[in-house]
Design a protein around this nucleic acid. Structure first.
Lengths: 114, 114
DNA sequence: ACGCATATATAGACAGCCTATGGACGGCGC
DNA sequence: GCGCCGTCCATAGGCTGTCTATATATGCGT
């Protein structure tokens, strides 16, 4: 009986990495980050606001990003986030850690059942 | 400042899949499941007892596994877990869902930063 | 007798993602 | 002018799942 109220859209633990990656391509506001991840993933990943904004706050506290108010090209106020040097370093760390984990899981999952 | 008290050894959400996979190769007791995952992953994954036993209980409740007491080859009592038909089906579902997720994340992470 | 590996189990803490909700504002149709 | 939709930020509250820590028990080697 899988709980129908839970969608498990994202792989827990990967959100901050995806945000860091998105910001490594240029400063962006929260809404745009979510749209970007969704688009780049081929609509497979959906970033909920209730996940994203707390994550951006955590990442700001950790010094991986900083933000400032700016106007969008469409003249709307938005908080633009920019990757710091520490954030760029963190992106590298998380990306390689994730890759190692996926490879390790792959070794288990590809084991022949015979 | 990464929290040094947290190790994040496993990718959250993958434990049940790994357990299902391990059991698809034959019945096993909890301790053995943990050892097996650790060995098959090339020592990259470590399954903590405090994660594994609750997971086995959840999976029993969901009908994916069933268990019975048995003696190990070394004459020690142990609770052996066996995959049910529902569990085998679940393994297929989780494996393909995981693969899709990893591919989606890969699409984002491999995007050229230019 | 003692330590060590094997084996199960639970409590408690905590991170992180979810749903749900609220507000604000610009552009558009009418 | 008014309503509606899309954009944009933000927080509260709940829940899952993993972790650390601890307790118990037993077989084996020394």
């Amino acid at each position: 009986m899988p709980d129908p109220t839970r969608s498990d859209q994202l792989l827990p633990g990967t959100l901050e990495m995806l945000v860091l990656k998105t910001l490594s391509m240029g400063s962006l506001h929260g809404y745009g980050i979510a749209q970007n991840i969704q688009r780049l993933s081929g609509e497979a990943l959906r970033v909920e606001e209730g996940s994203l904004y707390p994550a951006l706050q955590r990442m700001t506290l950790k010094g991986w990003v900083r933000s400032r108010w700016k106007l969008t090209p469409t003249k709307r106020r938005a908080r633009y986030y920019t990757l710091t040097a520490a954030g760029r370093k963190q992106l590298g760390l998380e990306a390689s850690a994730f890759e190692r984990l996926v490879e390790a899981i792959g070794r288990v999952m590809q084991t022949d059942a015979g």
